[in-house]
Design a protein around this nucleic acid. Structure first.
Lengths: 161, 161
DNA sequence: CCGACACCGTTAGTGGCACTAACGGTGTTC
DNA sequence: GAACACCGTTAGTGCCACTAACGGTGTCGG
């Protein structure tokens, strides 16, 4: 966990200088911040023997009920070819059950287990703490605003491919 | 270039429903948006026979002068083991020159060429347009605010590893 | 009824990214 | 002059989003 980062300590003459036009680009800020955010979240979740995809699937099952793998893929944004592995991991841990759909033999129906529900509660707490760390420098109002801006941008680019 | 995305059309009964607790997480918004941002930028730059790393290196050379590969690594945030390939690509295109440092035989001194300067001007225009597309839904004031929030978050996580 | 087509889960493989580890060559310090 | 730190380079790791293709299953038009 080290990083040779392009940091700019204004008063530090030995620090490398990142050009402003580079530092200010929203795309660069986004990808740098996401790198750190991903690392923070992944590390935190792995301490709880989980991955962010586990959370996505469990939350989807809890909030919107059981469904086929394709359904879950749509709800979570996880690619259907990656869903296989995620569900294997969840099934290994008995957080989820995969049963064939009697009405359509192409489908599996995925159901969350009691253990899965408990796990989800834990993960929600873990994520709350991690997001507190992620958004630490922002006030509550700023956090809301940040989320709102991100949401608007993502919506725009989701609906306008 | 397709995406089976977890979109929520509020009035559309057939659209997959992404749980709120998932959709609202800043970490998820960040990574989803960054995926799209990266694609937008990469596609746009590749149309100009460039990559974002090319821009980072050229801008750093232009704004802060020539330097060793290690220096550039520090200024741009590009890992030193990835810098080799980037400089190879830039040298192939004659945008950059790599000459041994007479004072320290361990070092190469990287210099931007005239052609590199011209290329950089083009890339700046391309990136301006792409960011206009990226931030399209936001007003100018909101764009500033967005960049400012990102900067504060990134600074915090850069200085507090 | 059946053939064309669409959808399902699954496997394998691609390319980008950030990174670690190790190397031989070179400077610096004690 | 020996120990150590830094340089560029190569190889390889793991994660992520994604494409392509597969055999099995369902649906629909003629």
């Amino acid at each position: 966990m080290s990083r040779a980062e392009a940091a700019d300590e204004p008063g530090d003459s030995t620090a490398p200088a990142t050009p402003d036009r580079l530092r200010r680009r929203a795309s660069r800020l986004l990808s740098q911040l996401t790198t750190r955010s991903d690392r923070l979240i992944n590390d935190g979740l792995s301490r709880a023997d989980a991955r962010k995809w586990h959370y996505a699937v469990l939350a989807s099952l809890q909030d919107h009920g059981s469904g086929s793998q394709a359904t879950l893929s749509g709800r979570t944004g996880i690619h259907r070819s990656d869903m296989v592995g995620v569900l294997n991991e969840l099934a290994e841990r008995h957080l989820v059950e995969r049963t064939p759909d009697p009405d359509d033999q192409r489908r599996n129906i995925i159901t969350i287990s009691t253990r899965g529900r408990d796990h989800l509660i834990r993960l929600d707490q873990v994520l709350d703490d991690l997001h507190d760390e992620l958004l630490a420098p922002l006030s509550p109002a700023e956090r809301d605003q940040f989320v709102q801006l991100l949401t608007r941008l993502l919506d725009h680019h989701t609906r306008t491919p």
